[in-house]
């Protein structure tokens, strides 16, 4: 297996990527990984690396890349939004099709990265299947969760909340980005993300998809939003596996989401991806 770090895309807006290329016997499908939002990307990074390496060992070329304003890609976080991320996925798909001998691309994503992968697949006929781990189905609810982090910082710094959620949203819309764990969230990004309601849209084309619900309990109920999302795909499958929320700081060191990875590989095999 060969792993190659590189920049791709336009000179004034290059993206950083790592290409995992199998030694031989490449499969007909390549994978493009879409990473989660902000610090969730860093906490989940090693899980992404482990999954990419495993897929490459099975003969699949994989491209992991950083969105504009994230990781080692060019640009400021505040300059990125949902549309720029979708354009980045499209560039990544284009790139892997140009370097790997494959005829289709599967998208994989976790949390907000999964939401973006699902949206990108809606618009791109080159995408042949989807793997969504704990997807953000309701973008508005997610943005509200993200703002909670700003409120906690206010409590720590000022001992009280000086601007509540509504005031933060007003401030963003007036052109003043809000600091979330060190990232500058803009009104444009907030509004675009808040429009995402994956369970309420109608798909234009059939696509096999795995929706993986990651839960700390083995006997947890199926999330109705995940169920609705999975039912949109053909075939769409919802499966629940036990995993800790490794996309944020937890006690355990998570370099591999073993249950999620094995469930994913099983699905790939059964669906001949």
């Amino acid at each position: 297996m060969k792993e190659q770090p590189f920049f791709f895309g336009a000179e004034d807006n290059y993206l950083f990527g790592i290409l995992h290329l199998p030694d031989a016997g490449s499969q007909k499908t390549a994978f493009v990984f879409s990473h989660p939002f902000g610090e969730e990307k860093l906490w989940a990074h090693r899980v992404y690396v482990s999954l990419a390496r495993r897929l490459a060992l099975l003969g699949y070329p994989v491209l992991r890349f950083d969105f504009t304003g994230h990781g080692d890609s060019m640009g400021e976080f505040a300059d990125s939004d949902v549309n720029s991320r979708l354009a980045d996925i499209s560039k990544a798909v284009e790139h892997i099709l140009s370097v790997a001998e494959v005829n289709s691309v599967a998208l994989f994503g976790l949390r907000f990265g999964a939401a973006l992968a699902a949206m990108a697949a809606d618009m791109d006929s080159r995408v042949s299947s989807l793997i969504l781990w704990q997807p953000i189905v309701d973008g508005e609810q997610y943005m509200q969760e993200i703002l909670r982090s700003n409120l906690s910082t206010q409590m720590t710094v000022f001992g009280k909340v000086k601007s509540n959620r509504n005031e933060l949203v007003d401030s963003m819309r007036a052109g003043e980005p809000v600091n979330v764990d060190g990232y500058h969230l803009t009104g444009r990004m907030y509004d675009q993300a808040a429009q995402i309601h994956l369970d309420q849209r109608r798909l234009l084309r059939p696509l096999p998809a795995l929706v993986l619900q990651l839960s700390t309990r083995e006997d947890s109920q199926e999330n109705p939003k995940f169920k609705a999302l999975a039912s949109q795909y053909a075939p769409g499958q919802l499966e629940t596996v036990k995993e800790d929320p490794f996309w944020r700081e937890i006690r355990r060191w998570y370099s591999l989401a073993a249950n999620a990875q094995e469930a994913t590989l099983r699905w790939i095999e059964v669906n001949s991806v």
Partner: peptide
Amino acid sequence: GVKMRIAPHRLYN
């Protein structure tokens, strides 16, 4: 720590 060569909120960049 584990926040790789990027560091929290891309501080190292």
